[in-house]
Amino acid sequence: MGRTLASALAILVAVPSLATGQVSVQGGVLVGRGEHRVVDADTLVAASGTLFGGALAVTIGERFQIHGEALGGQLTTAAAPNLEDHSVAEAQILGGMKVRPWLIVESGLSFRSFANSLARQHWTTWRIGAEARVPLGFESVAALLRGYWMPVVGVSGLSKPDVALAVGVGLDWRGRRLGISAQYTFERYDFAPSNGAQRLEELSTIRVRVGVWWPPTGRAKHSA
């Protein structure tokens, strides 16, 4: 009953907005490379691999947007199969509000899972930060700068990290219907020392996203 009511409410809110052309949607595919590095008990484990995913962004009016992203792939440590090889899967949803024409304040949740044949580790993070869009020399090209602080991080089997932050830099080209962006992201997690050893972890990616806008428009939209 409650879900039906919520769905009806969402439709009532969304349909007039769509009708007045205040909502735009962007869907896209992601492909990239990821590198996961962990130091635990003075042992460095580095794994990398190709990631694939998709993204969906909804822009409401001139100020608000919601975007979700799902990404996954296999990260390997060496050419030959190894026990340290693992897969990563991630889903993220962020809501943002434009506070300046070039600045969007964002917050949202990320769910990540690292898994190999022996175990699975779940990450849940809540992040808050901002994205700045800097127009470059070409009319439709902008640079992206992102920074997030993650005050809430839950990792299965581990305590909350002392340092948890994420940054990103990228370039975004936007046509009337099509958009392409390339972005470098970096996340750093420093866990508290335990028994004389400290666990340090970072995940860096480079992602290329190809997206399509609906409805087609020349207006500037925030990208996912």
Binding site: E35, L44, Y184, R188, E202, S204
Partner: peptide, 15 residues
């Protein structure tokens, strides 16, 4: 973190 000797420098350099 310098101890990780990484940070995806190749990716960042690409950007």
């Amino acid at each position: 973190n310098g101890e990780l000797h990484g940070g995806g420098r190749t990716f960042a350099d690409g950007i």
